[in-house]
Amino acid sequence: MKALSKKNLLILGGLLLLYAAVLGLIITGIINPFYEITLALICINIILAVSLNLVTGFTGQFSLGHAGFMSIGAYTCAIINMQMNSMAGFLIGLFAGAVLAALVGILIGIPTLRLKGDYLAIATLGMAEIIRVIFLNLEITNGAAGLNGIPRFTNWTWLFIFTAASVVLINNFIRSSQGRACISIREDEIAAESMGINTTKYKVMAFAIGAFFAGIAGALYASYFYFIKPGLFGFLKSIDILVIVVLGGMGSITGSVIAATLLALITTFLQSFTEIRMILYAVVLIVIMIFRPKGLMGTTEITDILRFRFGRKEERIQ
């Protein structure tokens, strides 16, 4: 096993191919500006869903406040980028936003992650609401009207880089010893603690990492749509992200990616029918919970399925 193994090169090649293909479609105009917005939404939703999945799907800590961290990233990046109107300003803003979101995540996580299940859900919801109210009242964030005219430095290249990096990094984390420690908390907190896992530490770690990437997603959002206001990051946005994670499967990275893409497409097609879209979301949530509570993918990944098929063939050859 080495960093430059055949498998990793294959993944890298695939990613480059995907990037080039989409870039080609954009240049040739097959993906027109209208669909480019969908593309941006897909990328941002993927980052949000994968990062929430780390917290909720893998570590088992039910959070209803992910939009709060997204808003910290969005506002931080927007404010810095508006002061420093350059590419450097955008990148500094993005990282500052992500780091700040992670710090707030740690600050919030230490007291609230002692709570379990639905109590934690409500506490995180409350935290996100508090963050929203603060943005609503600060002068620098321009209150309810929000910030307009944020410089737009985000394009397909940046979206792709950050999305791919987020997915790969979070995936690496989950498939490490720390990741297993997080998963053990989801499985049985008391047993995990008895096996030497500092559960508080890893819950807070997962929460902070989730917040970090949600901050990146928020920064990309602010930079791409050049307008943000507190109302965009309310309770409903957190639910939006949760729907993706639940639909894709709590504990499946590829599930989150698929669901994020699917839902962004649905959103685009139903853009002028907000109510219908939300009713559809609601019905999907209920039906999934009743008939397939594990979501589309459960805890398995696309790669597991492929490997399973492949492995069978191998056996047959032998």
């Binding site: 010893s177 720390q178 297993r180 420690a181 998963i183 053990s184 499985e187 049985d188 008391i190 047993a191 995990a192 008895s194 096996m195 030497g196 896992i197 805890t299």
Partner: peptide
């Protein structure tokens, strides 16, 4: 018995090695 039921046998052991 409080195993990590939905994890593999190997992961059950590896989690205990984490520290």
């Amino acid at each position: 018995i409080r195993l990590f039921k939905d994890l593999t046998v190997l992961d059950n052991v590896r989690i205990a090695m984490h520290h």
